[in-house]
Design a binder for these strands. Structure first.
Lengths: 214, 214
DNA sequence: GTATGTGAAGAGGTTCACAGCA
DNA sequence: TGCTGTGAACCTCTTCACATAC
């Protein structure tokens, strides 16, 4: 095992492996091989072994991977498991859905506060929290908030990103369809739902998949 | 301009360019250069010109791109603009948010029906449609449905994907955190919100970004 | 025999440098 | 001069083949 930079694509796949390990774990398997994880996720077995190899030895040749060990190892690599406090900004349709979503818990995320600008929403309980006014984001500074989720309209996204950065958030999951600028130390992952949907029709026309022919 | 396969990454970025063109268009610019689009989206100008080059000549050297032409050109490449009928399955928190979301319209998508398994939801109007029982998906067969959105729990996702495939859907946007299998002619784009959030903590620990050192 | 871990080869994508046109 | 379009160089990531360990 030599020094080696971990590809971004590998980091992107690691949480997926965690998902797969848990699916196979629930089926009662104590040990799995790269092939079964590959089948479960639709990723090649080579790819999985290569990805794991960036972080050291995970399995036993001829046997496979111990499920419990694999899960805790990936959790540690991804810096999950210890638990992370998350705040959400924007309690509209999408924000409300996120507050009611319990899929974050299995990765150790706790949404500890939610904010909105709309006075009509302030004070209402949604999911695990009561909606507060956005002006109160600054009060979260000493609460150990690691991550923020932006689910506000485009026009407010940058301002909210600035407010989240100010309270020391290290990562932002952004649903607003706009580029937001933050200091380099803050990592942004953006999900633009409409843009994702918008690339599907391209593949409906087979001739286009080969581009231009002179 | 020679024959050339269009990279998947290019296709992924094309809808983003459309988003950028519209932002700049609203600012009243009739003509834009690759640099201004690059600044707007956080992508390099070279990358943009290269991506466009796969589809032929878009702009005028020394001048830039005509905004209206660029928009209609990208629309045509992506097979958007002509309008696509979409059905949504799963009217829970996320599904409801999607039904209330109007960001799809600017890409020419119309959600023409929504389905759920929960009897309590059937018959209720949400956004532009009335929720129907999932058993009625089959009736959409001759309605010209191009795309489907899956917002159901993991346990139902594959079954719904099969039902959508059966009515002739050509593409699926899947929010269920599970791999689903469909015929090759059906294109799937998956968004796993928890998995996206789960890779953020990795970047909070700077030492990990270099992997293992022997 | 079976499955991992990894150097090397091969694809795929990005960046560069510059030719060509307005 | 300014900006596009593109071959070539460069880099990253994926796939392969096989040595190694159980």
């Amino acid at each position: 095992m030599r020094y080696r930079r971990v590809p971004d694509e590998t980091v992107r796949r690691m949480p997926l492996y965690l998902r797969g390990v848990r699916i196979l774990s629930e089926k009662g398997q104590g040990s799995i091989c790269s092939k079964s994880l590959a089948d479960c996720l639709g990723i090649s077995a080579w790819q999985i072994r290569k990805d794991f190899s960036y972080f050291g030895d995970f399995g036993k040749p001829g046997v496979g991977y111990d499920v419990a060990m694999l899960e805790s190892r990936i959790n540690k690599i991804l810096n999950l498991g210890c638990g992370h406090n998350v705040v959400l900004v924007g309690a509209g349709n999408l924000g409300s859905a996120i507050l009611s979503f319990n899929g974050f818990r299995q990765y150790g995320f706790n949404i500890i506060a939610a904010f909105d600008r709309d006075a009509k929403k302030i004070g209402k309980k949604k999911g695990p929290v009561v909606i507060e006014d956005v002006s109160r984001i600054a009060r979260m500074e000493k609460k150990g908030v690691d991550l923020g989720i932006i689910a506000v309209p485009v026009s407010a996204a940058q301002e909210i990103a600035d407010a989240l950065t100010a309270i020391g958030v290290k990562g932002i999951l952004n649903f607003a369809p706009v580029r937001i600028s933050v200091p380099k130390k803050v990592k942004i992952v953006s999900i633009d739902i409409a843009v994702e949907l918008a690339r599907l029709p391209y593949y409906m026309v087979s001739s286009q998949s080969q581009g231009v022919v002179e």
